[in-house]
Amino acid sequence: MIETLGTLGTVRVGLIVAFTLLGLFFSFVSMVGVLRLPDVYSRAHTASQADTLGAGFGLAAVALAVGWEGAGFKSVLLLFFIFVTNPTAAHAISRAAFEEGIVPWTEGDDRR
């Protein structure tokens, strides 16, 4: 069936698959980070970064799949929002932790 799409369509399908897999991969990294890292600050790293990138790839795949004539621009808008709000939220959370007096974990601390 892929043949009927032409080269451009085939490339698009390939990109969708690749982006989705990349999105899954980075979200997976984010999950592992949130589960494994020792304190709230280092968890906030993966929460804000790996997850933002994962969501970015996922939404890019959606934008490609839906197409511009569909509602792809909403997907792009979503991408923009996520890239602005996610780091801000991570900052707010880690700042709240800092103001509560939680000291960042360092090498040798037995909190895990």
Binding site: V34, R43, D51, L78, N86
Partner: peptide, 18 residues
């Protein structure tokens, strides 16, 4: 800590959006 929970829910929310 509470911040851990908020963080996790924030990540969950991003996931839900995706």
């Amino acid at each position: 800590t509470m911040q851990d929970r908020v963080l996790a829910v924030n990540v969950l929310g991003t996931n839900t959006v995706v």
